[in-house]
């Protein structure tokens, strides 16, 4: 399923590195080294996330997912996916497979989109740190706007995709 993405991506990566090594050999080498470090730094987390997804898939019944983020209760599904997405923190690499799993388990498109959007847009745990850098005013406004945006974009996504499906 990832074949096309991987192929396109591979070409982009090869081109960018051809450019890098032509322009600045040292910089190119540095980028490769940095990639290696990043890869092994993220690998343990990645393995655990996928193993957790495996567990989630086998042990959490579809009905539970449906209750919170399914079609039955639109308002509850919007609220719970936004809050859930705000609280969880983690690399996006784990957000997307998680979203796919939610869809497969019966979550609505809207709820899945809201969950993913708030995951990447709102940083609940890092709010104190953000305040220390930008100040209270900026931080609160930004997070409030991001939270609302996550919901609005999610609803629109569900609406557009639903329209296409119909």
């Amino acid at each position: 399923m990832n074949l096309w993405g991987a192929a396109i991506y591979g070409v982009i990566v090869i081109l960018s590195y051809v450019y890098a090594f032509k322009k600045n050999k040292k910089g190119g080498k540095q980028a490769v080294r940095k990639s290696g470090v990043q890869f092994f730094k993220q690998l343990p987390m990645l393995i655990s996330i996928f193993l957790l997804i495996g567990l989630f898939d086998r042990f959490v019944p579809k009905s539970v997912v449906m209750t919170f983020v399914g079609k039955g209760n639109e308002f509850l599904s919007i609220l719970s996916s936004a809050i859930f997405g705000t609280i969880v923190m983690g690399p996006v690499s784990s957000a997307y497979p998680m979203g796919a799993l939610l869809l497969r388990k019966g979550a609505t498109i809207t709820a899945t989109a809201i969950f993913l959007n708030s995951w990447v847009m709102v940083g609940f745990v890092t709010i104190p740190y953000e305040i220390s850098i930008f100040g209270r005013h900026f931080t609160l406004i930004r997070n409030a706007l991001a939270f609302m945006g996550a919901i609005i974009i999610g609803i629109l996504t569900g609406w557009i995709l639903g329209g296409i499906a119909l």
């Binding site: 990832n2 991506y9 590195y17 890098a20 990639s35 990043q38 890869f39 957790l52 495996g54 898939d57």
Partner: peptide, 30 residues
């Protein structure tokens, strides 16, 4: 089965993950 499924998902996404890491490092330096 959960373990097998998790590992299989991981293996499937690894090529792209490698690309992501390479591309991000490229951007961060250049």
């Amino acid at each position: 089965f959960a373990f097998k499924e998790g590992i299989w998902l991981l293996v499937k996404m690894l090529p792209i993950f490698v690309c992501v890491v390479l591309f991000s490092s490229f951007l961060s330096i250049f």
